[in-house]
């Protein structure tokens, strides 16, 4: 990021990039898009992320008994 005001945006592209890199749980994703970084409310974050995940339709796999999402390149 650049400078102290480095914003993170919750976008389809950003989510796709994370999930292409490695499998992540919903909680992992939420950590990447913390409300204090995106400026969104908790509710907005959940809604937007849900829409993006439905659209991307990532693969799912269980790792350590937790559901992880990932995308093949």
């Amino acid at each position: 990021g650049q400078g102290s005001g480095c914003d993170i945006q919750l976008t389809e592209d950003a989510v796709r990039r994370y999930l292409t890199r490695k499998p992540m749980t919903t909680k992992d994703l939420l950590k990447k898009f913390q409300t204090k970084k995106t400026g969104l409310s908790s509710e907005q974050t959940v809604n937007v992320l849900a829409q993006i995940l439905k659209k991307l339709n990532p693969e799912r796999k269980m790792i350590n008994e937790k559901m992880h999402f990932f995308l093949k390149e």
Binding site: K27, L29, L30, V46, L53, M67
Partner: peptide, 20 residues
């Protein structure tokens, strides 16, 4: 806090459950 993250993760999973 981590409990807020837990709540958000639960809400997100609930949203996705309709879909999965």
């Amino acid at each position: 806090s981590s409990s807020e993250a837990d709540e958000m993760a639960a809400a997100l999973e609930a949203e996705l459950n309709d879909f999965i």
